[in-house]
Design a protein around this nucleic acid. Sequence first.
DNA 1: CATGAATGAGTGTTCATTCAT
DNA 2: AATGAATGAACACTCATTCAT
Lengths: 206, 206, 206, 206
Amino acid sequence: MSTTRGRIDKRQAILDGAFTVFARHGYAQAGVEDVAREAGVAKPTVYNHMTDKATLFRHAMRAAAMDALDQRVAALAPLADPGDDLPATLEAVALTLLRLHTDSRYCALRSLLYSEITHFPDILDIVKEFGLDRVNQALADRLARLALAGRLRTTDPDLAAEQFMALVLGPLEARSQMGTRQLEEAELAGIARAAVETFARAWIVS
Amino acid sequence: MSTTRGRIDKRQAILDGAFTVFARHGYAQAGVEDVAREAGVAKPTVYNHMTDKATLFRHAMRAAAMDALDQRVAALAPLADPGDDLPATLEAVALTLLRLHTDSRYCALRSLLYSEITHFPDILDIVKEFGLDRVNQALADRLARLALAGRLRTTDPDLAAEQFMALVLGPLEARSQMGTRQLEEAELAGIARAAVETFARAWIVS
Amino acid sequence: MSTTRGRIDKRQAILDGAFTVFARHGYAQAGVEDVAREAGVAKPTVYNHMTDKATLFRHAMRAAAMDALDQRVAALAPLADPGDDLPATLEAVALTLLRLHTDSRYCALRSLLYSEITHFPDILDIVKEFGLDRVNQALADRLARLALAGRLRTTDPDLAAEQFMALVLGPLEARSQMGTRQLEEAELAGIARAAVETFARAWIVS
Amino acid sequence: MSTTRGRIDKRQAILDGAFTVFARHGYAQAGVEDVAREAGVAKPTVYNHMTDKATLFRHAMRAAAMDALDQRVAALAPLADPGDDLPATLEAVALTLLRLHTDSRYCALRSLLYSEITHFPDILDIVKEFGLDRVNQALADRLARLALAGRLRTTDPDLAAEQFMALVLGPLEARSQMGTRQLEEAELAGIARAAVETFARAWIVS
DNA sequence: CATGAATGAGTGTTCATTCAT
DNA sequence: AATGAATGAACACTCATTCAT
């Protein structure tokens, strides 16, 4: 069993190391040797597990994207049972999303996806399977339930979800200075509050 | 004079070609030779104008970012004299911004900035000087005027501007599939209308 | 006993596989992994039997060279009792030699010996022990007997043997296009006949 | 002009160096770096002139094969005007051929052709254009003239040429120990004399 | 000033060889 | 004894950069 474990662990270590290194240097600048060092293995071991640098990249990206999607969907959980104060719940969810979105690994993931989509047209599949669209859909599902419960305007949950996400995450782009500025918790809270306030005026049944 | 002209033209050709090539292949994958070919000159000529591949990159990025900012600020012009129907004017502005934002060169610019910010910490200056923050500021100025004119809630024009931009541009991220899907004009118009509607509920004095 | 058998068989399988693979790809291009696969064992098993790739090569070559010599010496057997028609017997022998010489494994053996003699100076021993010189000697012995029996000019059986071999095998070099062209049986027969005819004029007592 | 000269010279140096190195180490074992060093240039310069290691090999082989053919055809020149003593002329020609055939570069050429024909099926063209067959043809032409002049049996100049070459060069294979033993001039002369003697009995009109 | 040619440094990939099981 | 997995060393090929012209 330890053998299998060891192999699995090593594979995981390689994928993790790969993402770390790709995140740090970009695809082209990252050396397979760096990946190996980061994963604590020798260079050929990387090639024993992944045929190519390209394949290595694809697998590492897919794993990271899956993680990211899981985290975001989990962040929506409170909406399943929002309690009396819906705005407060939305604000909490918004804050969690903002924290996730300012995490450096996630920033790196997005940036890598954007910059390598030209060279790896097939990573579009990763985006379709694990991208923000999926979060929007999950959120729309939650909002639809709330609409049925009479707590939200019932017109278009997809649009509501999209605008909620936009109001919450949109401000990050300009404020985070391309991810170089680490936003204070208070600033994130402020964004969340303002987003929910505007969202509420447009969508919440008071 | 024609000599000087020629030199200037050549410099411009090099910067243009550089941005085109960097946009196509990314910084690391782009070859100086490719840039030279694209600009119609020989490789050493590039080095005669720009000391480095890095310098070449910085100059090309700066030029592209300046262009982009100019276009966006120009797009706000209608707000200087909005006429009677403010929502309609906002919608027109929003649509123009969406068109600009889905342009492939702009997508490439953003993606390059994001992916190379690690290797070129100093391109942060470009962002500060010509980034979206500047558009937000310009928009906030316009909105402040409108607030003074009693047509907008007067609380916080900066926040209003930020949320306007978020509602307009935010939906693009999920919908454009990382810039691979070319959005229809109708879809853009839909986004603009929905954005302005929500914005109006929160900010416009009716 | 079956264990020992198995071991011997495995060793033989490894040597055979090794020669096959070396013949196909050349020494440097051949991978030990290929040899292992061809022999139906795992790579370390090869190393359990042969210390080195080099040793493996040497043993495989020696085995192949021994086989080749045996075949050629056996081909001379008819000369022990040539019957009345000496030319006919010589022609039969010549034809057998030609067939052996155009066999693809033998071509590969020669070509490997020639190309690796620089890297493996010691395979010269293989040539001395099992090379064409040995065939010449064996043939010279036969011819000496025939000379004593008054059927051949008695001057120099070594030279006679050498020239017989040259007349028989020499034409192959140009005709076989480096072993790529498979000569027809009729063509081989023609070469044999012509060789014996010329040999006869010079050496046979009529 | 010196520029062009220099480039041509460099190309020639690369081809020469390549053949030298390939001859020394074989195709697979030879490093492009070694070739560059041997040619007195840097590694990328080799790639500037030849796209591939494979292409480099093909060109080097072709050049060497052309040289070899030229030398051999030139060696036949005396037969154009053989004088009174035909056997003596043939012997002289034979000796020259033997000297050419024992040259180490030629041995290497043959051995490389044989060993790499599998990986480079197209070098067969080189053999067809510049191989021994061409020497046989040229020799057959000469012999045909001599036959017309009544000095040779007129039956089959092609066969005569083939057998002449076989009698002269055939003995080398066994004697030279795969090119490792450097044959003495006297030994070569002996081979030549014996070859011509046997050839004469079969073909020369006395 | 513009260019063709040359180079030094670096990277992806392979392979003979060796442990741990 | 036999194997799956790991490694160190090597090598083909590329590219930013610089001379000579």
